[in-house]
Simulated assay, not measured.
Amino acid sequence: MASVVALDSLLDSRRVWRGQPQARPTSRQPTGFAALDAQLPSGGWPESALSELLLPMDGIGELRLLWPTLARLSQAGDASSDEKIVLIAPPYLPFASAWANAGVRLERLQIVLAQPRDVLWATEQCLRSAACAAVLCWPLQADDRALRRLQVAAETGQCLGFALRDAKAAANPSPAALRIVIDTAPAQLRVIKCRGGNPPTQPLPLSALAH
């Protein structure tokens, strides 16, 4: 006869995953690209959630993909607003003029230099703080448990979280609400996971991303 196991013990041992409600967000976080918004169930970045951009290399257009949203968030409210755009352990020193030309208010932009072992911890603290409009991080390694903590922190702090990771991670499952692979040959985006609906069956050419 099978034994009865308490549900709480199964959840604590991570043998059962507690799913999140699939309600559509009450407000939109448009990407700034109509073609991409049309492919996403929420019509943009998932609200208060972690999104992953999976890259074969740095500098292939991932920041251009995020700049319209970051610019809009940085311009919201007045100059004294405490909500920041935070970059945690970027692989290169951001070029201030490029960010300013993209419309991001530099006074709302903060850079956190962290050792690789501290990137995930720093990201979680910023996401959870409710003091940030968006947090971008570049973790060298992140397992399912670490990513789940970031997802929960984004929900708690009602913040947009973005993890920019190696494209090889696409082969592994992730609790992130949205996962996008950026390919270079051909130049395209592939949505491989999106909360609230099925991923589109066709990739989106980068040439289709026009404001």
Score class of each variant (00 low, 15 high):
Val5Leu: 03
Ala6Glu: 14
Leu10Phe: 05
Asp12Ser: 00
Ser13Pro: 04
Arg15Ile: 10
Trp17Leu: 15
Arg18Pro: 03
Gly19Arg: 14
Gln22Tyr: 05
Arg24Gln: 14
Thr31Ser: 15
Leu36His: 04
Gly44Lys: 14
Trp45Ser: 13
Trp45Met: 14
Ser48Pro: 11
Ala49Ser: 15
Ser51Lys: 15
Leu54Asp: 01
Leu55Trp: 06
Pro56Leu: 10
Met57Thr: 11
Gly59Asn: 09
Gly59Glu: 03
Ile60Asn: 13
Leu63Arg: 09
Leu65Gln: 06
Trp67Cys: 06
Trp67Lys: 07
Pro68Asn: 02
Pro68Thr: 03
Leu73Glu: 02
Ala76Gly: 03
Asp78Lys: 06
Asp78His: 10
Ala79Arg: 08
Ile85Gly: 04
Pro91Gly: 12
Leu93Ala: 01
Ser97Thr: 07
Ser97Ala: 11
Asn101Arg: 11
Ala102Ile: 06
Val104Leu: 13
Arg108Ala: 13
Gln110Asn: 07
Leu113Val: 05
Gln115Asp: 12
Pro116Leu: 00
Pro116Trp: 02
Asp118Tyr: 07
Asp118Cys: 06
Asp118Phe: 03
Val119Lys: 09
Leu120Glu: 13
Trp121Asn: 02
Trp121Tyr: 09
Ala122Trp: 07
Thr123Trp: 00
Thr123Tyr: 04
Gln125Lys: 12
Ser129Gly: 04
Ala130Val: 12
Cys132Gly: 02
Ala134Thr: 11
Leu136Val: 09
Ala142Ile: 11
Ala142Lys: 12
Asp144His: 08
Ala146Met: 13
Arg149Tyr: 02
Arg149Val: 00
Val152Ala: 11
Ala154Asn: 09
Ala154Phe: 08
Gly157Tyr: 11
Gln158Lys: 07
Gln158Glu: 01
Ala163Trp: 14
Ala163Glu: 15
Leu164Thr: 04
Arg165Asp: 00
Arg165Met: 11
Asp166Gly: 03
Asp166Cys: 08
Ala167Trp: 07
Ala167Tyr: 05
Ala167Arg: 06
Ala169Arg: 12
Ala170Thr: 04
Ala171Asp: 09
Ala171Glu: 12
Pro175Ile: 07
Thr184Glu: 02
Thr184Asn: 07
Ala185Asp: 01
Pro186Asn: 00
Arg190Leu: 08
Ile192Tyr: 04
Lys193Met: 14
Cys194Ala: 14
Gly197Thr: 03
Pro199Ile: 10
Pro199Trp: 06
Pro200Gln: 11
Pro203Glu: 04
Pro205Asn: 02
Ala208Asp: 06
